[in-house]
Design a protein around this nucleic acid. Structure first.
Lengths: 330, 330
DNA sequence: TTCTGGAGTGTTACCGTTCTCATCGCGGTC
DNA sequence: GACCGCGATGAGAACGGTAACACTCCAGAA
């Protein structure tokens, strides 16, 4: 910077003003400085700027180290929105959704001087850990289902999605709908159970017992085999598309045809779920949008004084009808 | 830091020595400083440290903004290895694998002072853009297939994977193997074509024409429909699992049973490909390992003097036999 | 004419570390 | 007993920016 100043025949402060687009610089001076910057191939040193302003223009993301479809799509949504706002994103992942690891991840991000943190928080432990973040650090949780009240959160309306799915199957004429849930200690899984159960109640339908497991096809397969043995099962709502894939295979192996014998609905709308056998009717979640909303919320809270102005953003899911769900055969 | 020094009754320099575990500090003094740090809840300011040392302990990743299975898994591999080595990772994504966007992403990372860059480089344009990175910035490309010679690269041996798949089908007794390729301007796709073709040549089998498309199920479906019309097709090797999913559905809709009428082999070993209908025989790539290797290579090059000591790392894929590939029916 | 105010610029301090070099004891060597 | 070397510590200068303030013009108002 000193070199640029010397070459342009001005003080370093004027160079700084040019960089920061300060209005009170004569046009001719600005040109001279810009030319000097170009000819010296100058790039401002962000570390020095950070030291002086205490703003790093970097945002932290606490991610969950596993290949679940959602979190990854959100990362892209967050990153591209952050880029547009002039921020870079740094990622710290946790192997386990519990207090300690999350605090460590937050600590790493804080040490590196991020201006704010967005945490993938499918379980409440993440949010509570976040409340213990060093004072004044702006945080936003994304995911879960309504977690810590008073904490800024962005999430999908899981119960509404479940209602959509269940209602769809009921409307097709199924007497009731079975549900293969995700891990019940995940609020998202629980909210889907609630939405499903409420819809059945409201319709006066029998509420079958819930079976739960992990979010993957193996779990869906295992529980699908059990459901397949019960001839009264004609409609199954799965907590996500991967589970649905397992159920599809279980039904097939048990000789029950989908959708002729059993209708299946998933949740997530993964990229290729339209190519399952048969193409899966499912509930779409726009993860990229979720990421963008989370970023917008964080940026807003960043600008605010220190006072909390938390806010919850809830994004509505929507039904994607394909052909794995049809009216029951009589 | 000054406060800590004052409280411990030492100079700021001694505090610095304690933080950096310099050996020449009396044990008793160290204890006093550590106690002061704890009681003041002191955290070192990384920005200042970066300014003074010109090392940010941050690594940059240039990612590809799309939900391909591989890159995402690699991110986790890189991140956890980076964490172990004391680095934080920052991510800059590009929407398009061409020169300009990649240079911009690199520039953003450089501005933020990353110590080195790992780029997801499935296409050569990324690597060539990387060679234009500001001098002295350590870079590693991961992915692609042999790209820029002399540029440090980590990749999977795609041709070997293709040979594995093709040989497997040939060994089962299929007279020849058809191939549904990925986009041929991607070296990975091309290498898989080469490995497939070479194996057929070597076995003296007929080499059918290649059909190519994008890496998704839609492309697989479209080309699968065409292959299904040809009754001589008994074995299909797909460039990845998503394409295979589309082929599976196409075969099913055309009334050709997999694996009885047609055997199918994929590539990638995505999490749930064992639950396709039928469970997919495929080629496993360990993306997390790839990420770890890339990081190790980068760290090594980081330590080196300025002289380039590039090196290529090639990871071997392996066959995962499931039940979508069986001997042909005679 | 003198005062006022703002545009344009420079001066100096400061952000929180690390680095270089100097200082001070102290035990061992000749 | 003078000298040397080394362990333990401190003082001050970087590192590359930004913030606060001072200063100089010069136009317009009193």
């Amino acid at each position: 910077m000193r070199d640029v100043a010397k070459l342009a025949g001005v003080s370093h402060q004027t160079v700084s003003r040019v960089i920061n687009e300060h209005p009170n610089v004569r046009a001719e001076t600005r040109e001279r400085v810009l030319a000097a910057m170009r000819s010296l191939n100058y790039r401002r040193n962000l570390a020095a700027r950070t030291l002086a302003t205490r703003e790093s223009h970097t945002l932290g993301i606490v991610g969950f180290e596993t290949t679940l479809f959602g979190p990854e799509s959100m990362l892209y949504g967050i990153e591209s929105a952050a880029r547009a706002a002039g921020y870079l994103v740094s990622v710290a992942t946790v192997r386990e959704l519990s207090h300690r690891p999350v605090l460590e991840a937050v600590d790493r991000l804080v040490q590196h001087g991020v201006d704010g943190i967005i945490a993938i928080a499918p379980k409440p432990a993440v949010t509570t850990a976040l409340t213990h973040a060093p004072g004044g650090m702006a945080c936003v949780a994304v995911g879960g289902d309504g977690g810590q009240p008073g904490f800024p959160t962005v999430r999908v309306d899981n119960a509404a999605g479940a209602r959509l799915a269940t209602r769809h199957l009921l409307d097709l004429g199924h007497p009731t709908v079975h549900h293969v849930a995700g891990p019940l200690d995940w609020p998202e899984a629980q909210a889907r159970v609630d939405g499903w159960r409420d819809t059945l109640y409201a319709a006066g339908a029998v509420v079958p017992p819930v079976t739960a497991g992990w979010w993957d096809a193996a779990a869906g397969y295992e529980q699908g085999r059990r459901l397949a043995e019960d001839p009264s099962v004609t409609a199954v709502f799965c907590a996500n598309d991967r589970i649905a894939l397992g159920v599809l295979r279980a039904m097939h192996e048990s000789g029950r045809c989908v959708p002729d014998d059993v209708s299946v609905v998933g949740f997530d709308d993964m990229p290729d779920s339209g190519y399952f056998l048969p193409p899966l009717t499912t509930i779409h979640q726009d993860f990229a949008e979720l990421g963008r909303r989370a970023l917008a919320l964080l940026l807003r809270n960043l600008g605010l004084p220190d006072g909390d102005a938390p806010e919850d953003v809830v994004v509505a899911p929507r039904l994607i009808p394909r052909i794995s769900a049809v009216p029951p055969r009589r």
